[in-house]
Amino acid sequence: MNIPDELYYTENHEWGKVEDGLMRVGITDYAQSELGDIVFVDLARKGTSVSKGDSLGTVESVKAVSEVYSPVDGEIVEVNEALENSPELVNHDCYEGAWMVVLKMDDPSQASKLMDSQSYEDYLKAEA
């Protein structure tokens, strides 16, 4: 299971990458492998304000639908439009090409309350 060191993680298997007051968000390698072949990604619109835990969209495989939850409070300032036509990117490149949205964080200190890679790895082990 690929768990990059530099990212933050949530219990719902989203990752977040802090970039200068912004957070880039996607789903983890574990999440994509549990879902199987992703066939559709439906993301909220640019400009939407979200609170931590709100839905940023849904990810669908043939037989399952999963919500993507916001790791922090903020506003969606960018949406990855490539996923509309290439949902398979989520399976192949979940940490780079398949980022989902970029959030402008209301409170950048919220990021540090998320799990780091080591805690996420432990969390996955405990879940199993």
Binding site: E60, S61, V65
Partner: peptide
């Protein structure tokens, strides 16, 4: 498009 349907969603 079964994910729209009752048995999944």
């Amino acid at each position: 498009l079964a994910t729209r349907e009752q048995h999944i969603r």
